[in-house]
Design a protein around this nucleic acid. Structure first.
Lengths: 160, 160
DNA sequence: TATTGTTATACTCTATAACTATA
DNA sequence: TATAGTTATAGAGTATAACAATA
């Protein structure tokens, strides 16, 4: 009896997990944003863009940045413009395609990013200071499954 | 030798974990936001506010909502105003303190929220569909540690 | 004086769509 | 026609600070 009362409370565990995931991310993100602003007068998207470039010394095209940062193109243009103005990144022509170019860190940009990255890593290490190395690895692995599943779902949607 | 090269790459695991945590949250969040907009013409903060009220049938004061939603007071006023206009929540006087009141769901608001919550739960169940019940529990538990540690850190900062 | 909540403001980030230039 | 990137715009979301009313 009371079969109807089931249905929509059948998987509360997933919901609880989501709320907790969201809370954890927001707590850490809020702190990182605040520290980036206070200590370096920058923002998370700007830091993120520079981090992408740091991993790709030859630079990245706008659409590559757009995809990796998971935002649309117009936004990348705006953030890039700011960083160019401050001399932290530069636009370099791509030979063979005059529509495109690569964005890459300037020498000064790389130095600035290294400073930020060092601090950033400290904040993150501290944020996960309550976990053992083993637990961190487990979390990383499980979230890898979540990410993969999510990616699969997105591809299904695109193909449909 | 090369002692200096250590230091800032000593805990890359925490960093990798953070990036993955952020990615997972953004992927799911982006989808939930989109669905809320498409199917219910609402936003995540509005849904969040209503969810807080659903868990507290007697309503919550503005500062309680502010704390639980982790945003400052002015924003809660704005979101509440919208929901009042649409007849989904109402402001109720608190007896004994004429400065304050409680915000609570209207009958219509509760019905509307139930519809949204049912859908929302489906999206979330799907988002974590790649995990077993056991894995979901493990994730939940580990993230609980992260949350607790983060809460402790914040309290230390406030006391300092 | 402190607290509750509002108002005013400004800024970042974002998506969308129309646009230019090149392929 | 399609692709790379920009521009323009509008809106969400946020923090900050000054403010009014009450405690």
């Amino acid at each position: 009896m009371d079969m109807e009362a089931r249905g929509h409370r059948e998987h509360p565990e997933a919901l609880r997990l989501w709320l907790r995931l969201l809370t954890c991310t927001q707590l850490i993100e809020k702190q990182v944003r605040g520290q980036l602003r206070e200590q370096f007068e920058t923002t998370l998207p700007r830091f993120d863009l520079m981090a992408q470039l740091e991993r790709n010394p030859d630079g990245l095209k706008m659409n590559e940045l757009s995809r990796r940062m998971m935002v649309t193109g117009g936004n990348v243009t705006g953030i890039t413009d700011q960083l160019v103005t401050e001399g932290l990144v530069e636009r370099v022509d791509v030979e063979g395609d005059r529509r495109a170019y690569r964005v890459r860190l300037t020498t000064r940009g790389r130095k600035t990013f290294d400073d930020m990255a060092r601090q950033h890593e400290d904040w993150i290490v501290q944020a996960f200071g309550g976990l053992s190395a083993r637990e961190i690895e487990t979390l990383h692995k499980l979230l890898g499954k979540v990410k993969q599943h999510q990616t699969d779902l997105n591809q299904e949607m695109e193909n449909a």
